[in-house]
């Protein structure tokens, strides 16, 4: 007898494949689970904690937690939504964000999730950290004020580009984005314009120099479609699909 491989996510039945995490299975089934540090092409990290879900009263990260038959997973109750909101507010408070004038405003996943969860203020006192910028590269500008330490750039570098350009260093609140080069500057690294690593940043930390402020407000990626419809997108994955194509697996 073959056992049916599925679990429930907010009462909805979700099939899964061996080795799937809750988040991977949900995504394949077209169900959006909030996330920032997860990307379907790369190994899970588990650092942002936006994907928290509850299983038998225990809160776990859906991007890591292995799917198992018969699990009853809760994703959307008011408590978990509130916790996600607070995590976002912590992410905003610990960096230096200035959405209205930011290059990626409208296509930023952090900002899009904040809209989605109805965030109206920081709630926590801003930390005003001192973080470096790096304008040494001809194609990219780096502003670590906006880094959320998701390590997507690091993972894309190791797992897809097979060359190290970005990684995280430091500890605690002093965690920092480091660049693989003797000077520590991007301009001296092996970074190239078409590196996957340079195009996975969910926020505006690794910034291509060209092409900003081109889309008028109202036509940017997340202007028309909230992130829970279209999933995580970059500016180059533009065309906004209709609501019924939510979680289109071709997007992350």
């Amino acid at each position: 007898m073959t056992e049916k491989r599925s679990f429930t996510l907010d009462q909805q039945e979700i099939p899964f494949q061996p080795g799937d995490s809750i988040l991977q299975a949900a995504q394949r089934a077209g169900v959006y689970v909030p996330h920032l540090c997860f990307h379907p092409d790369f190994s899970a990290n588990g650092s942002c904690r936006l994907c928290v879900v509850s299983i038998a009263g225990k809160t776990v990260a859906a991007c890591h937690y292995p799917a198992r038959s018969g699990l009853q997973v809760t994703m959307n109750n008011s408590r978990l939504q509130q916790q996600r909101l607070r995590l976002l507010q912590l992410l905003f408070a610990e960096g230096n964000h200035f959405c209205p004038s930011c290059e990626v405003s409208g296509s930023c996943q952090l900002q899009a999730l904040a809209y989605d969860l109805g965030m109206t203020h920081y709630h926590y006192d801003p930390f005003y950290p001192q973080r470096p910028r790096d304008g040494s590269h001809p194609d990219f500008f780096i502003d670590t004020d906006r880094c959320i330490f998701c390590d997507l750039c690091g993972r894309a570098g190791t797992e897809q580009d097979h060359k190290p350009v970005y990684r995280l260093g430091g500890r605690g609140e002093q965690t920092r984005l480091l660049i693989y080069s003797a000077s520590g500057k991007l301009g001296d690294s092996r970074a190239a314009a078409d590196d996957k690593a340079a195009h996975v940043c969910p926020v505006g930390c690794i910034l291509p120099r060209e092409g900003h402020y081109r889309d008028p407000i109202g036509e940017r990626v997340y202007d028309a479609s909230p992130i829970h419809w279209v999933g995580n997108r970059r500016r180059d994955q533009h065309a906004a699909p209709a609501a019924d194509s939510a979680g289109d697996p071709s997007h992350d």
Binding site: S47, R49, L90, G172
Partner: peptide
């Protein structure tokens, strides 16, 4: 704090 995850780092 090692700084890995949001709730503890921030």
């Amino acid at each position: 704090s090692c700084g890995f995850c949001t709730p503890c780092r921030a």
